[in-house]
Amino acid sequence: MRYFLLGFVLLCVLVVSVAGFRGSTSRKPPIEVFPDMDRQLKLRPQTDASFFEDGRSSRLHVPGTVARGSHFEGTPFNTGLIPGTTNGVDVIPVPVTRQMMQRGQERFQISCLPCHGALGDGNGITKKYGMAVVANLHDARIVKLPDGEIFNVITYGRGLMGAYGSNVTVEDRWAIIAYVRALQRSRLASVNDVPAEMQSMFKK
């Protein structure tokens, strides 16, 4: 009995010392008990796929095709351009709603704020880290830019700014433009834009 107990304790110590405790950091991939069920013969997005020459399981668009449900028609809404020209449309081709404005604010704060800053003045956090030329969205040049031109800057980038066409959807691009216009307006407003009964607050 004594030997059995000794052996038992030693075995327990051995198991714990080899297997360790829960939650200890490991560089090795997790153990999977039935790997054939856990990892089936199907491709997951963004994994290596040796079946394809380029190794991508998420396939890129075949040139000249459009994905189902994607925007492809050459309408001003999808391209930001006046049909048949390379000029941007003057105003957002959809009605601007409160909901759209809020969406625009949210999207602006996700995708634009790091560089253009919360106020759109080009003082985003990246400026501290060497992003030298970020457009100030309150520049007269940008205020005067037609909405469709801004749409194309977001879609394809300009100068050192990268293209955001694949990161921000068409709808969201217009929503962002609506919000940028509101930001610009906030700096260009005069005291006459304030309701009459509240104007006295600003006339000191």
């Binding site: 829960r22 939650g23 950091t25 560089r27 991939p29 997790p30 153990i31």
Partner: peptide, 8 residues
Amino acid sequence: KYTRVGYQ
């Protein structure tokens, strides 16, 4: 809790 947690 043992097999996956801690994987880094």
